[in-house]
């Protein structure tokens, strides 16, 4: 992406976000007592003020985009070498969502083992055996520290419980 595109997209995004906050989010999701005498002290004042400034910054970014360079900056954007970058990003997002579902059901240790293996292979590791060993050892070592030393109640899940 060129600096011009970045500034333009950010400016547009900031303006839209500010409009969304002012017109929809704050009126619906920020409650304010009806007996507040002064708007400056109301719970809605700060979000409104910040949203307004965000809108102004967005306008500033749009203005700045006019003078920015349209030439793409090759150094700033990491190149995807195999054309599968978006697939891997999507897969990582799926792994994260699945982790949230698995944590209370499988428990943290088993979930962590699976997540480790999946991410290591997603990143095309050249050391699959090491990855498998680490996938078992690291979650267990962290479980031992947090559960036995720090006294944290690590989720155990509903299938296999650890001592």
């Amino acid at each position: 992406m060129s600096p011009k595109t970045i500034q333009f997209q950010l400016g547009l995004g900031a303006c839209l976000a500010a409009a969304f906050l002012v017109l929809w989010a704050i009126p619906n999701w920020v409650s304010s007592p009806s007996n507040v005498s002064n708007i400056v002290l109301a719970p809605v004042f700060w979000p409104y003020a910040l949203s307004g400034i965000t809108g102004l910054v967005g306008l500033g970014l749009l203005l700045a985009a006019r003078g920015a360079s349209p030439v793409p900056d090759a150094e700033a954007e990491p190149a995807a070498d195999d054309g599968l970058s978006w697939v891997r990003l999507s897969a990582l997002a799926v792994i994260m969502v699945a982790t949230m579902f698995a944590l209370p059901r499988l428990g943290m240790v088993w979930t962590a083992m699976i997540v480790f293996v999946l991410t290591a292979f997603l990143f095309r590791t050249r050391h699959p055996i090491t990855a498998l060993i680490c996938a078992v050892v690291i979650p267990l070592a962290l479980y031992l520290f947090f559960a036995k030393v720090a006294g944290v109640a690590i989720p155990q899940g509903i299938f296999v419980r650890l001592p």
Binding site: V115, F116, R124, I138
Partner: peptide, 25 residues
Amino acid sequence: VPKRILMPAVLILCIYGVFAVNNNI
């Protein structure tokens, strides 16, 4: 240290560490 092993380890450490703050998924 192979970074493609290190990063999954960092991810697991993050999960444990963040959970440990409030015991909250």
